[in-house]
């Protein structure tokens, strides 16, 4: 029995190593192809409109990208386990409303708002994770239900009036500059570094890949499936919360629908960045490139004067096409 376990463990570590340390030529190529697509897109748009390559526009794009990238990173973690979290958009709403509540309705200092928001995100992720791991609801069903619970809670907390005008220290997170670079970009960089390290070098991070790649082998090698699954959803909830905080700090107000538009791009970005929805494959760098592609497309549409009402149409098409590409790539492998 013990030998069998060891054997399975060896298999899993091999698999995980394959994912991490021996990227085949094809994989390296496909990673650069994404970067190439981003560059071509940027060049194309800058040829059509010279304002695109101006520093102010680029910094603006990056600053707007920050919440989107962080939420997409949360989705990436869930994708690695082979699940999906449809509730992330509403977690963004909920957590920004929670932070708005703490900032405007109580006398607590601004960092309490951050703790409360991240806590709310973690709690929401915990419940979603439990529904999936213990009750064994399919991830789409459980997280879709939680979408509406989160949205409802946000409504309930806000009551009739929206929260606005937050203290300057809090707004600094969304609008401030540090060493000439906007704070949201610093936050994204720090989170990306920590997450990259976490996924590559910690036991939990590697377990996430393992349960996505082959749950049976992962279980045989002694990984606690339900615990790992739940922690993936908690992490994604916390990341969505950080996205919500930055968003609230930048807009200086929260409303009931602010998070809803993040869901579709959060599905598309990891997939475009090479994270497979089937689990076990992908990572931080790809998702950031994927999010940037999404954002450059929307920014380009704005610069080219296309009415923003059509944006959802484009996002919908991009989501379908990128997931289709993922399906094709998986079949080929």
């Amino acid at each position: 029995m013990n030998k069998k376990n060891n054997h399975a463990e060896a298999e899993v570590t091999e698999e995980v190593q394959l994912i991490h340390e021996k990227p085949s030529i094809g994989k390296v190529l496909s990673r650069f192809s994404r970067l190439g697509a981003l560059l071509i897109l940027c060049i194309g748009i800058s040829l059509l409109n010279q304002n695109f390559l101006k520093t102010t526009n680029l910094i603006n794009v990056f600053r707007q990208a920050a919440p989107q990238i962080i939420i997409s990173l949360g989705m990436t973690i869930v994708f690695l386990t082979g699940g999906i979290d449809l509730s992330l958009g509403s977690v963004v709403t909920l957590t920004s409303v929670v932070s708005g509540y703490v900032l405007t309705q109580t006398n607590l200092p601004w960092w309490c708002a951050i703790i409360a928001a991240v806590g709310a995100g973690a709690l929401s992720g915990f419940v979603t994770g439990q529904l999936i791991a213990i009750i064994k609801l399919p991830p789409a069903v459980a997280s879709y239900g939680m979408l509406w619970v989160g949205r409802g809670l946000a409504f309930a907390i806000m009551g009739a009036s929206p929260f606005f005008s937050f203290p300057d220290t809090f707004r600094y997170l969304g609008r401030g500059y540090f060493l000439g670079i906007p704070m949201p970009i610093w936050i994204v960089a720090i989170i990306a570094l920590i997450l990259g390290w976490f996924l590559k070098y910690t036991t939990l991070g590697r377990s996430l890949y393992a349960i996505g790649a082959n749950p049976h082998a992962a279980r045989a090698s002694g990984i606690k499936l339900s615990k790992t699954l739940v922690s993936a959803y908690i992490l994604s909830g916390m990341l969505a919360a950080i996205g919500g905080i930055i968003l609230a700090a930048r807009l200086n107000a929260v409303d009931q629908d602010m998070g809803a538009s993040f869901l579709l791009p959060a599905i598309a970005s990891p997939v475009m960045g090479g994270t497979s929805m089937a689990g076990g494959q992908g990572g931080v760098a790809g998702t950031i490139i994927g999010s940037l592609i999404m954002l450059v497309v929307t920014n380009g549409m704005n610069l080219l004067g296309i009415n923003s009402l059509w944006q959802q149409l484009v996002t919908g098409i991009v989501v379908v096409l990128s997931v289709w590409l993922d399906v094709i790539m998986r079949k080929r492998n």
Partner: peptide, 8 residues
């Protein structure tokens, strides 16, 4: 969800 986006 994609179709939802397209229709909206």
């Amino acid at each position: 969800l994609g179709t939802q986006g397209i229709a909206v």
